[in-house]
C-alpha cells in the first residue's frame, strides 16, 4: 500500500514538474482529455462525424508536414497517397472481400510503394520542378482510374465499402484513437535523430551529404513514411465514408493539406494538426452561409498568414512561452527567471 502511494506521489510530481510548467504541454494534455472524453458530453451524430473526419484529415496534414515541412521536398500532389490508400483499401475490400481492419494497413503499404514511385524521380528535382512533378502524379492516377471503370468504379467511385464498426462510439474511438497514436508516432519520428537529418536536408542538402549521410535513403524514407501515414488516412476515410471516389485524388485535396500545414506552422507536426482542428470545423460552420463559404475560409487563412507568417501555432506559442536566453528551455511567459537555470528572462 505504501508503495502504491509512493508511486502515485512520484507520478504526481512528474506531472506537476513536467506538464503543468508549460502552457503548451497543458494544452496538449487538455486536447487528449477533451477528445477522449467528448462522447461523455455529447453523442450528437453530426458532431461526432465532424470530429472523426477532422481526425482523419489531421493525420493527412501531419503526414504532409513530415515530408514537405521537414525535408523541404515540396509535395503539391499529396492527395496521391490519400487516394492510393483510399482506392487500395477499397479494391481489396470490394474485390477480395478482405475486412477493413486489414485493408486499411494494406492500402497504406500500397501508398508506401506510391511514395517510392514518386520519390525516385523526385530525387533529382528541386523547387518548382519538384512541385510541378508531384502535382502531376495524382492527376495521372486519376486518369487511369477514370479509364478503368470496371476495376475502379470510374467517375462514380467505389461504393458499398464496409465500415470497421457500425457503432457511433466505436467509430469515434477508433478514428480518434488511431489519430492520436499516429500523431504521437509522427512527432516521435521528427523528434528523433532521423528528424534532425530531415531538418538538415531542408536546410542544405549538399552539406548533409558532405557530413556522410546518404540523403537518397533519407529522402525516400521521408516519402515512404509520409505515404504510409497519408495512406492510412485515405483508407480510414474510404471505409468511414463507404466510398472511394475521384475527389480523394483531387487537386483541391492536395492544396488544402498545404494550406493546413502553412496555417498551423510547418515542420512542427502539431501545427498542421491544430490547423485542421481549427479550420475543418470552421468550414462546417461556414456552411451557414454556403455561397460565401470558400471566401470566408480564404479570408481567415490570408489574415493569419499575413500577420503570422510562421503559422498560427508558432505565434501563439511565442505569446504564452518564452525561451530562456541562456539554456534555451521554454518557460511560461509570466515567469521572470528561467525555471531551470534561473537566468533572467527579459
Amino acid at each position: 500500500m505504501g508503495l502504491v502511494i509512493f508511486y502515485v506521489k512520484k507520478l504526481f510530481k512528474i506531472f506537476r514538474n513536467e506538464v503543468l510548467v508549460l502552457p503548451s504541454r497543458v494544452v496538449v494534455g487538455l486536447f487528449f482529455i477533451v477528445l477522449l472524453g467528448l462522447p461523455l458530453v455529447t453523442q450528437d451524430p453530426y458532431f461526432i462525424r465532424i470530429i472523426i473526419l477532422t481526425s482523419i484529415f489531421a493525420i493527412f496534414a501531419a503526414s504532409w508536414d513530415l515530408l514537405s515541412g521537414f525535408t523541404g521536398q515540396m509535395n503539391f500532389g499529396h492527395a496521391l497517397f490519400f487516394g492510393v490508400g483510399a482506392y487500395g483499401s477499397a479494391m481489396l475490400n470490394i474485390h477480395f472481400n478482405i475486412p477493413p481492419w486489414a485493408t486499411i494497413p494494406m492500402g497504406a503499404i500500397v501508398a508506401v510503394l506510391a511514395g517510392l514511385i514518386v520519390g525516385i524521380p523526385c530525387l533529382r528535382l528541386k523547387h518548382t520542378y519538384l512541385a510541378l512533378t508531384t502535382l502531376a502524379f495524382p492527376i495521372i492516377l486519376l486518369g487511369i482510374i477514370i479509364a478503368l471503370p470496371d476495376i475502379s468504379g470510374g467517375e462514380l467511385g467505389m461504393t458499398g465499402l464496409k465500415r470497421i464498426t457500425e457503432s457511433l462510439l466505436g467509430n469515434y474511438y477508433l478514428h480518434v484513437g488511431v489519430f492520436l497514436v499516429l500523431a504521437v508516432i509522427m512527432w516521435e519520428i521528427t523528434d528523433s535523430n532521423t528528424g534532425i537529418i530531415f531538418h538538415a536536408i531542408r536546410e542544405d542538402e549538399l552539406a548533409v551529404k558532405a557530413s556522410g549521410i546518404n540523403t537518397v535513403f533519407y529522402k525516400l524514407l521521408a516519402f515512404c513514411l509520409s505515404g504510409f501515414f497519408a495512406g492510412i488516412a485515405g483508407g480510414l476515410y474510404a471505409h468511414y465514408m463507404r466510398i472511394a471516389g475521384p475527389s480523394t485524388l483531387g487537386v483541391d485535396q492536395s492544396f488544402t493539406v498545404v494550406i493546413y500545414a502553412i496555417f498551423g506552422g510547418a515542420a512542427t507536426i502539431y501545427g498542421p494538426i491544430a490547423a485542421v482542428f481549427i479550420l475543418f470545423p470552421l468550414l462546417e460552420v461556414f456552411r451557414l452561409w454556403p455561397e460565401y463559404r470558400m471566401m470566408l475560409f480564404a479570408a481567415v487563412v490570408l489574415v493569419i498568414l499575413l500577420y503570422m507568417p510562421e503559422g498560427l501555432i508558432h505565434w501563439i506559442r511565442d505569446k504564452i512561452e518564452k525561451e530562456c536566453p541562456r539554456c534555451k528551455i521554454r518557460n511560461i511567459a509570466t515567469r521572470k527567471t528561467c525555471r531551470i537555470c534561473t537566468a533572467n528572462l527579459d
Binding site: 535523430n193 534532425i196 537529418i197 531538418h199 538538415a200 536546410e203 542544405d204 549538399l206 552539406a207 548533409v208 558532405a210 557530413s211 556522410g212 549521410i213 534555451k328
Partner: peptide, 29 residues
C-alpha cells in the same frame, strides 16, 4: 575524407549542436 566549405554552409535554423550531430550520425562516425 571530410571537407569544410569555403563559404560556410551551416544548417542555419538548427541549433549548433544539431549541425554537428548530423555528422555524428554518419555510419562512419
Amino acid at each position: 575524407v571530410a571537407c569544410t566549405f569555403q563559404n560556410m554552409r551551416p544548417f542555419r535554423r538548427l541549433p549548433i549542436i544539431a549541425n554537428v550531430m548530423v555528422s555524428c550520425l554518419s555510419p562512419r562516425s
